[in-house]
């Protein structure tokens, strides 16, 4: 046996290194990749919405701001006499303060869709209305938050109140995230986050982000 090891120690050490590499990939690298995927998925669609809001915004404000005052009033007269769909908007922009009144334009005529779009965009995915920011639990990302919301889990209190049976039930629905609840100790984290005991939380789970 000793002779075999001596003769083939290079192969054996190589296998050991490969085992280490595989373990590193499983426990470190693949997790990092997952987080990146979550990030890209999370941001999908948002920029498009914001851009759409800009596209929908009536361009009159920007154009008028660039024109000299005389031309602005001329443009306003033309717009008023032609009884275009947005005369009120054009009139509002004859002021030299044309740069400011995005809101004014929104009230007048075709600005309405922009206002609606603006109302939709600002809420970040991680802080839904009527619940806690579950991503504050270490190990929970936007994807898991979406899964939890599908199960109507929205607050730290919900998670803190889980029994073992609840954990098993939820865990069974987490797909490739199975086992995370116990591994990352969500219940304990949620309990501490719910009570707001930051010192105890950071002592046990590290710094809050």
């Amino acid at each position: 046996m000793a002779e075999i090891v001596q003769a083939n120690w290079l192969l054996i050490v190589g296998a050991l290194v490969i085992g280490l590499l595989v373990a590193w990939w499983i426990f470190v690298a693949s997790r990092r990749t997952t987080v990146q995927l979550e990030d890209t998925d999370d941001s999908e669609g948002k920029p498009a919405k914001r851009n759409q809001a800009l596209i929908d915004a009536p361009p009159a404000a920007r154009k008028d701001a660039d024109l000299p005052a005389g031309k602005v009033s001329q443009a306003a007269e033309i717009a008023a006499s032609a009884a275009s769909p947005g005369p009120a908007s054009a009139a509002a922009n004859t002021d030299a303060t044309a740069a400011a009144p995005l809101g004014t334009d929104a009230e007048a005529g075709d600005g309405t869709p922009m206002a609606a779009a603006l109302n939709k965009t600002p809420a970040p995915a991680a802080t839904p209305s009527g619940g806690d920011d579950l991503t504050r639990i270490k190990g929970v990302g936007p994807k898991l938050v979406a899964l939890l919301h599908d199960m109507d889990v929205r607050s730290f209190a919900d998670i803190a109140a889980w029994s073992d049976a609840d954990i098993d039930r939820v865990d069974a629905q987490l797909g490739r995230f199975q086992g995370r609840i116990r591994r990352d100790n969500w219940v304990e984290q949620a309990r501490l986050l719910q009570t707001g005991d930051k010192a105890a939380y950071e002592a046990k789970f590290g710094r809050t982000s």
Binding site: N8, I12, A15, I18, L20, V22, A23, F27
Partner: peptide, 30 residues
């Protein structure tokens, strides 16, 4: 048992030890 098979078993053992070591280092406390 042929020698190559013994070597293979030793390599598998070393691989398993490497996996266990990696788990202890990176996988246990997260």
């Amino acid at each position: 048992m042929p020698i190559w098979m013994e070597v293979l078993v030793l390599m598998l053992l070393a691989y398993a030890v490497g996996l266990g070591l990696g788990w202890a280092i990176w996988g246990r406390d997260t």
